[in-house]
């Protein structure tokens, strides 16, 4: 059941991205930026939470989920530590993803060379 929900929720979020790409000429970079920002906003006003509860990985793996984690982490830290939490919370909550991307990015660059497309 988890899997079916993850498939449908995750697929739908990607489908929205595809519609934006085909119909509005938004470049992939702009899609990523808007999806993360949308995730932050939807997370902050409490709309993304129920989507995560329903879709689990289907909602956390796509980039709005990254934004949702940023918002959720920030709010949690503000509650705990006050204003400084606005600066510490977001990155703490997403630290694994960011550090992994930087580290593995570097590692792959050492190991592999780009290949020409055919």
């Amino acid at each position: 059941m988890d899997y079916l929900r993850a498939f449908i929720v995750g697929g739908t979020i990607c489908l929205i991205g595809q519609i934006l790409m085909d119909k509005t000429n938004l470049t992939p970079a702009r899609i990523l930026v808007s999806f993360v920002t949308a995730g932050v906003i939807l997370g902050a006003i409490g709309i993304y939470e129920p989507i995560v509860e329903y879709g689990k990985a289907g909602a956390t793996v796509p980039l709005p989920g990254f934004g949702y984690s940023l918002a959720k982490g920030t709010i949690k830290e503000v509650e705990k530590y006050g204003l400084i939490g606005a600066f510490t919370g977001g990155i703490k909550a997403t630290s694994a993803g960011i550090a992994a991307a930087i580290f593995f990015g570097y590692l792959m660059a050492i190991i592999f060379n780009p290949k020409a497309k055919s």
Binding site: C14, G17, P28, L63
Partner: peptide, 22 residues
């Protein structure tokens, strides 16, 4: 897949690794 592989966090990872390699 277009957005299907851009929007998931794997796509975020791709967008870091691709220029790093290049």
């Amino acid at each position: 897949a277009g957005a299907g592989s851009i929007v998931p966090i794997t796509g975020f990872s791709n967008s870091i690794v691709a220029p790093a390699m290049e």
